[in-house]
């Protein structure tokens, strides 16, 4: 049984058409012209219980709009969403009991008072049982180190501490579903690592279903079982990481350092190399693994010059996504 179901979701925003310049701005005051912007267009997907789904796409793709519909704070223009059998934008408060939400760029903590006061408020707002509360607090102190700054006013916390505290308050009631909107934005490597481990642990031990939007490809590589990619409101990909790599990432990169020579690498193109750069010393060669392998290229090179060093770069998800975004961008330019 799917815990989240999204069917043909479309959300359009109406906004006043703005004209350029000073007089344009004045004209805008009196004009009635609107333009319709479609943030999400006919998106359908479903999420199973216990999954960690990465919901990714370039800036302005419609990720946040989808998440906001799922948490019940935006009403879709058409289509449906269902979360644990509840239509979130119709029963927002009922839905709120089942979910935890962290928006990386905002906080739900009380700004001027210590973290512990926000925690106590959540405890009563979600009517958390004492036993569950104490158990969860124990986990959060261990893994997130909440204890260190529980009595500090939120405005004095570092970004990393604040994010840990935000995670803590959004998970206190052990929600079935956790929405994370860029949870690692602006954090240092250690804190990122810490938070990723925590998310993993929550998913494994509590069976929490997690929907994660992020621009950090390491988040995706380390956390997500499955990826949903959206661009300009359209669903572009939905499936596991392996097939995405296969689809967009059959490229590998080989860097070769040679002694100075003037070999023309054009000959490689016929063998299955898709791109190369060579300045006489350092060669950067991209190739498709189903046509040629690193050995083949190295042999070809060694016949023509002295190779001093080389390294092979595996495709990582970042390159896959970069390639995918670029293709999406080109495709939409062509359509125009």
């Amino acid at each position: 049984m799917s815990i989240i179901k999204v069917e043909n979701l479309t959300k359009q925003f109406k906004r006043t058409k703005r004209k350029k310049g000073f007089f344009g701005a004045i004209k805008t005051l009196f004009s009635n012209e609107y333009e319709i912007k479609t943030a999400v267009h006919d998106v359908s997907f479903s999420v199973e219980k216990g999954e960690i789904v990465g919901y990714i796409g370039p800036n302005g793709a419609g990720k946040s709009t989808t998440i906001k519909t799922l948490v019940g704070i935006l009403v879709p223009t058409s289509g449906n969403a269902e979360v644990k059998g509840i239509i979130p934008y119709q029963s927002r408060i009922e839905n709120a009991r089942n979910i935890g939400v962290v928006f990386g760029q905002r906080t739900q903590l009380w700004w001027d008072i210590p973290v512990v006061d926000s925690i106590n408020l959540m405890r009563h707002m979600y009517k958390i049982q004492d036993a569950l509360f104490e158990e969860n607090m124990k986990i959060f102190s261990q893994v997130l180190g909440i204890d260190e700054f529980i009595n500090t006013p939120v405005r004095q916390l570092s970004l990393g501490q604040r994010m840990r505290a935000d995670l803590c308050v959004s998970l206190l009631h052990s929600p079935d579903i956790l929405y994370l909107d860029e949870p690692t934005i602006g954090l240092d490597v250690v804190v990122k690592e810490n938070i990723r481990n925590f998310i993993k642990k929550i998913n494994k031990e509590m069976g929490t279903t997690i929907v994660l939007t992020t621009h950090d490809m390491d988040d995706i590589e380390m956390l997500c079982h499955r990826l949903i990619v959206i661009d300009k409101g359209h669903l572009m990909y939905d499936g596991d990481m392996g097939s995405l790599k296969a689809k967009y990432g059959s490229n590998e990169r080989l860097t070769i350092i040679t002694e100075k020579s003037d070999v023309d690498l054009k000959g490689l193109l016929a063998l299955g190399v898709s791109e190369f750069k060579y300045n006489g010393i350092k060669a950067d060669i991209q190739y498709e693994t189903d046509k040629i392998n690193a050995m083949g290229i190295l042999e070809w090179m060694m016949q023509r010059c002295r190779v001093k060093d080389f390294s092979i770069h595996q495709v990582n998800i970042e390159e896959v996504i970069r390639k995918m975004y670029r293709e999406l961008d080109e495709r939409s330019k062509m359509m125009k």
Binding site: K68, I73, I93, A96, I99, Q108
Partner: peptide
């Protein structure tokens, strides 16, 4: 600022 989102995700009006 959009901070209203943080109030609307709570199980309280």
């Amino acid at each position: 600022t959009g901070q209203i989102a943080m109030d609307l995700i709570k199980p309280m009006s």
